[in-house]
């Protein structure tokens, strides 16, 4: 099997549709280890990808006012059982542009793999960027995933991101995102993860609402069982008049698993408002009993609730 075929297969295992990576009409980027196996730029989108010893440096430029309707598909993977993949990213979305990225990160055979996604995102004035990242880490748990992004959303811009790993082992996930949100701009961060065996999941999200009327939402949905551990460290700062922030965290715990949530709310302007809600523990009694009363066994009912939440 060629490297390209191998990565396409892994991409499909993560839920991606390989057709998108082959179509000349769809923007795409395929990286396996430190090799760039596919790159398709489209009008309004420029992508530079340069290999470095343990990964690839990626620069993505979306031209100002470009409105790219079809999502751009990205695939990052490591096929061997061992290795390091460092993706150094720099996204620049020009003023008034709009774009959506669908990334799949796949490490189906990982025994000792480290994947680092590090870099910056800049959403220009009145621009919109949607970024969703779906992970598949296989069943062995031998993976460490370290997404680290510094994000800036300029006046009137909108940034929506979602990270999800809801199939197979998590391994060790340590996500760290910081977003600075300017005047009348919006940032929504969603993280969903499933952990079992001795998986470890850490979600660290900081949203700084720096401009007047800035809005931020950090949602996390995590389910852990066995001896897995999860921790959500969500910090939201309301630093400007009429800034609105909300943190919404649900962690479902089963077996010997342990979940933690540390929501930090800091408000430095008396016209800002930040709220948070966190529910940590077993599934809600009423939800559970509702399904059981339809004749479902307790385990089945919990499963349906957890799957729905992570879905």
């Amino acid at each position: 099997m060629s490297d390209f075929e191998a990565i396409l297969k892994a991409y499909a295992a993560a839920g991606g549709n390989p057709e998108f990576l082959k179509s000349p009409k769809v923007g795409s980027l395929v990286i396996s280890g430190n090799q760039v196996l596919g790159l398709n730029a489209i009008p309004g989108l420029d992508v530079q990808a340069d290999p470095v010893p343990d990964g690839v440096r990626v620069a993505v430029r979306v031209a100002p006012a470009a409105r790219i309707e079809t999502p751009v598909h990205l695939c990052f993977g490591v096929i061997p059982e061992e290795g390091v993949q460092r993706i150094l990213v720099d996204y620049e979305v020009g003023a008034g542009a709009s774009i959506e990225f669908l990334a799949h990160c796949t490490f189906p055979n990982a025994l000792r793999v480290q994947h680092v996604m590090q870099g910056t995102v800049h959403v220009g004035p009145a621009a919109t960027m949607r970024y969703s990242e779906v992970h598949y880490h296989g069943e062995t748990g031998g993976i460490e995933v370290l997404p680290r992004l510094q994000i800036r959303v300029d006046e009137g811009g909108r940034y929506f991101s979602s990270f999800s790993q809801t199939k197979g082992r998590a391994g060790r996930i340590d996500l760290d995102y910081t977003v600075d949100v300017d005047r009348e701009a919006l940032a929504e961060l969603t993280a969903k993860a499933l952990g079992y065996a001795d998986d470890q999941i850490t979600v660290r999200e900081t949203i700084r609402l720096n401009g007047e009327g800035a809005r931020g939402l950090a949602r996390s949905r995590i389910a852990v069982r066995d001896r897995a551990r999860s921790e959500v460290l969500a910090t939201t700062e309301g630093n400007a008049p009429f800034a609105r922030g909300h943190v919404d965290c649900v962690e479902i715990v089963r077996g010997q698993a342990v979940a933690n949530a540390v929501p930090v709310v800091r408000v430095t302007d008396d016209r800002a408002q930040v709220t948070h809600e966190a529910a940590i523990g077993t599934v809600g009694k009423k939800e559970l009993e509702t399904l059981m009363s339809r004749g479902l066994a307790e385990d089945e009912a919990v499963d349906i609730i957890v799957r729905g939440m992570l879905g």
Binding site: K286, E289, M292, L296, M309
Partner: peptide, 21 residues
């Protein structure tokens, strides 16, 4: 509850629960 449900005893709740997803 499950066994009673399987015997055909069920409840429509006064304030039904909500289910994400």
């Amino acid at each position: 509850i499950t066994e009673r449900g399987r015997l055909g005893l069920t409840l429509a709740w006064q304030e039904p629960a909500r289910f994400e997803g």
